[in-house]
Every structure is written in structure tokens, then in C-alpha cells.
Amino acid sequence: MVLCIVAAIIFGVLSIFSAKYRPWAREGFHCAFRMLTFRKCDVHLEERIRAHITGRLMTRSEHLASAVYRNFKLFSWIFTIIFFASMVYTGYSVYNLAVHGTCEPGGSCIFVPQESTLSSANVSVPSSGCVQADAPGSVTPYFDNAAKVQFFYRDGCPWCEKEKEILTLLAKDGYRVKPMHLDTNPEYWNEYNIQATPTFIGPDGKRVIGYMEYMPLRAFLDSYK
């Protein structure tokens, strides 16, 4: 029964691109609707899907076909749960992409390619960052070569630009960071083992990789006052 809902969604999406799947989608929706209104599915959709799958497996292995057939309910529940879990996760990622500009803030993703190395180096990964090289930047009020916290950044990196906006706000309260411009000093990449920008490194070696909001950054800078 649960397969009908999955079938309705999958065939529904496929039928946008191909008319071949429309009758299946219609049956899926019909079946799902009957299921949700506590009525018996009268189009035997799940039965037919089970027969098609078992039939195909039979040509390879009768034992495998038999096992799948007998445990079909279990398999379809597992498949359904995985299906919906991935749907929810995809939806969450799309939300994050729209709001934060990355599919996975705080997690491993393309912006933070070597998470395992970094986590072993006692670093937290609160936000996102950039890895592409860029052109030199400009002088700003929040930079101070004598500041304790080093700020690694590049030009053309949108997350660095966003971070600079936060730093501008913090500069009004006297916060400063040491500019570590990677484009003019590319040797910093290896020297400081920089994986992504922006990256902040405190005098004790503690580093934060990726964009930080106002409050976390202020707290980070406060810890070295």
C-alpha cells in the first residue's frame, strides 16, 4: 500500500517529462487517495509492481525472487522511509541553499573539502566559505596588523565579503583583526594550512573556518581580548 504513495510521486514527476508514465501516475494517485481514505486499492498497483519485480528477479535467481516476494512489505516500507527521508533532506538542503547560500551549513560539503583533517585539528566549522583564488582587496578600518586574531580572506569570495560587513559593524566597537590576504600572499595556504576562506585563527591556534554571524564572531574575538 505504501508503495502507491511513492509510485504516485515518482511517476508524477516522470510524467511531467514523458506521457508514458501518466497512466501509472494516475493509478498511483488513485491508489494513494484510496489508501488515505481508508479504502482498498482497486487497481492492484502494488500487486503489479511486485509481480514485475519478482518476475525480473526470477530470471536471475529463484531464491532471490522468492526472498524479495515474501518480504516485499518490509522492503517497500524501507524503500518508502528512505524515499521520504531523502525528500525531507533534499527540501532542507534547498532551504539552506536559499537562506544560507550552501546546501549544508556546518557540515561537510564542497566548500569544506577536508573536514576530517580539520576536525582532528580541534576546529569548529560553523558556516560556509570559499576556496577559489582571487584578486587583491582594499584597506579597511577593521584591519590592524597588531590584532591577535588573524583573518584569512580572498577577493571575489562572496563569504569573505559578507564577513567583512560583519567586521565593519564590529570595528565600530573597536574590534580588529589581522589581515591575511591570500591572494597577495599565496604561501599562506600551505603555511597556515588554509582549507577555505574566510578562516579565523586565534593566537592559541584555534581556528574557525567559514562565515560567522555577528554574535559568534564577536564572542570569538572577545575570547582573545
Binding site: H44, E47, R48, R50, A51, H52, T54, G55, R56, M58, T59
Partner: peptide, 13 residues
Amino acid sequence: AGSHEVAIMLDRN
């Protein structure tokens, strides 16, 4: 087994 299942398997296989 559902009768349709048997019929589909007879047909397809």
C-alpha cells in the same frame, strides 16, 4: 499470491 501477480509473471517471463 494475487491472481494478477501470477498472470503478469506468466506473461512477462
